[in-house]
Design a protein around this nucleic acid. Sequence first.
DNA 1: TTCCAAAAGATTGTGTACAATGTAATTGTA
DNA 2: TACAATTACATTGTACACAATCTTTTGGAA
Lengths: 148, 148
Amino acid sequence: MEDNKYSCLELKNQLCFPLYACAKEVVRAYKPYLSALDLTYTQYITMMVLWEKKQMNVKEIGRCLYLDSGTLTPLLKKLESKGYISRHRSKADERNLLISITDEGMKLRDKAVAVPREMSKCVKLDKDEAKELYRLLYKFLDNNCNCE
Amino acid sequence: MEDNKYSCLELKNQLCFPLYACAKEVVRAYKPYLSALDLTYTQYITMMVLWEKKQMNVKEIGRCLYLDSGTLTPLLKKLESKGYISRHRSKADERNLLISITDEGMKLRDKAVAVPREMSKCVKLDKDEAKELYRLLYKFLDNNCNCE
DNA sequence: TTCCAAAAGATTGTGTACAATGTAATTGTA
DNA sequence: TACAATTACATTGTACACAATCTTTTGGAA
């Protein structure tokens, strides 16, 4: 266990690297299940907030998902082209683009419940560890879920 | 705390979402410090393994970083154009592309030690929590650091 | 010795991410 | 009430990330 002045730059001493790697591997693990729904991971979590809230503007979706309009604008257009959501300007304030879930989008929810079920099978953590990981990640993010 | 058949699809009940969000926010937090070195986060972790190993082929770098040639090929060309690494085919086996760190690349290491120092200041976790998060992430990845 | 399968990278195409900037609608204020 | 600042979203440009596929080189079996 040498501790020279460069040890802080070794990959094995990084906390952020396994975070980065883990996130990527998880998205990869989701892929086969989400492909069956014709969704990417980012599209999936977008649908997730819309299944709950039914209608939101782009700003609100972005606050929930930590994404900006540069990412969401093309993604929402894609979800619209798939028929899962609709995009309309608010009458009250034309700046707001209201994103609403369609019937087709709501139908997808019944198929999607299989995804968390399948994913939970391939997580190597026991219940307490998963809970603690959840807590630590939100503490790292310095807040609770923005979408509560 | 309702628990209908769709609760498994609520964002706040996801373990993978804070992982995804956390990883993104961390990369964003690195940005100002890495810009000073003319590196992106992915370029930074690539330099990190090369500061340690001095010379590796693309496959070995990919195994350390969980990246494939589709990501690494253009990234390594960019690091070469910055003068931090050199790329040469192995004489012994022409299939292997040997990536070597340059003197310029090694010089960068002295500036880079400031990065973990600055980053550690903005982590909201205490030492034990950070250690536990580290452990849980590698358990989630189902291994120890590939680059040990 | 041929020749086929495997290995290592490179390439292509799609889809994020995000900083920086642009545009239109709205709001606050002198 | 003009008009400047703010807000919401869109656009542009750069940089990953990865699946699928291609090319070249190598190693092994017939």
